[in-house]
């Protein structure tokens, strides 16, 4: 529980830093182009990568805060308290499944030495954020399934 909270705080810091850097890069590019007559080469590509990073971390933060949209109209069909825990267990399994394919996605990207043009950066180390976000979501749902009280508390983080 403590570990999960620490994890979410770390994720929040990474996401906020990524957005701060995105903003600064875009502003620096505009400033450099309009006032120094020179584009900041690769600023846009870097800003996109940073915002993808923030967005993917946001996905798992949203899992922790239970912020994902969830249609509730069918909740009454199985109106038992254990359904919540079962649901979390299934979510954990599904996210773990997607994490598995996300790892495969990164491995493929590495095999094909996929890169970001202009900044000439090898892409796969950045793409690790995709399996990370999926796996981190899976872990959170798994903890919720084991310990519904944790879900209550983390939702307020």
């Amino acid at each position: 529980m403590k570990i999960l909270r620490l994890l979410m705080q770390t994720e929040a810091i990474v996401a906020a830093l990524a957005y701060a850097a995105t903003t600064l890069l875009l502003l620096a590019d505009v400033f450099s182009r309009e006032f120094l007559s020179r584009s900041l080469w690769g600023a846009q590509q870097s800003a996109i990568l940073l915002s993808i990073l923030a967005g993917m971390i946001g996905l798992t933060l949203a899992t922790g805060r239970q912020a994902h949209f969830r249609p509730e109209f069918a909740d009454g069909i199985l109106a038992f308290s254990w359904v919540d825990r079962l649901g979390d267990l299934i979510s954990a399994i599904l996210f773990a499944g997607f994490a598995y394919f996300a790892v495969e996605f990164v491995v493929e990207s590495r095999n094909f030495s996929d890169r970001v043009p202009v900044i000439n950066l090898t892409l796969w180390p950045v793409q690790i954020v995709v399996p990370y976000a999926m796996a981190s979501s899976a872990i959170k749902h798994f903890v919720f399934a084991l310990n519904p009280a944790a879900k209550e508390q983390l939702g307020r983080t």
Binding site: A12, G55, M56, G58
Partner: peptide
């Protein structure tokens, strides 16, 4: 303040991006 807003934006985008 900036930190809080950036994080809540990340959460919002985390629900929207997928």
């Amino acid at each position: 303040d900036f930190f809080d807003e950036a994080v809540s934006t990340a959460v919002m985008l985390g629900t929207l991006f997928p």
